[in-house]
Amino acid sequence: MASVVRKGRIESERWQRLDEVRLAALCAGAEAPALAAESVVLIPLGLWLVQRARLACLALRSAVLLNAEDDPSPLLPHLGAVSRIAVHFARFADGRGYSLARVLRQRHGYRGELRAIGDVLRDQLFYLGRVGFDAFELRSDQDPHAGLAALADFSASYQGCSDQPAPLFRRRAA
């Protein structure tokens, strides 16, 4: 059973990935009422950009889905209006999502939820948390309690990052 580590707690709500047919139906207004009750729906960036006006009218909770290779620039002007973004890790060892998170948070000031999904494992959680993810949909075989514990693997860090923009040397001085 896959779980989500979020805000220091273990939750079970996963964001839903729909196939293209259902996404099309959703944008046509056909699927929304049923889904709305269920859970947050992931809308791939490309589709979200085209359909965002329409999506906004639906009684639906949605999240923008970014893949590691996506260029987030078209999303940036709307960032203030977005409250959920998911970054999908196809492979845990693909580090692009780390920089993407930092750019969204620190360069563009994104304040909503930033969720890591896909190949998300316990051993990457500490760094993911530092670069700006605040929710982690663990791969289904992962123990959520271990995931929660991993966020405290280190009690200090040298560098400033999204979670703590001031590097250690500035905090030491304070």
């Binding site: 580090g95 780390y98 500490f126 560098q159």
Partner: peptide, 14 residues
């Protein structure tokens, strides 16, 4: 060294 050590963003470079 301190900056690079356990740098969270750059542990999975190409």
């Amino acid at each position: 060294r301190q900056w690079a050590a356990l740098h969270p963003e750059f542990a999975y470079l190409p």
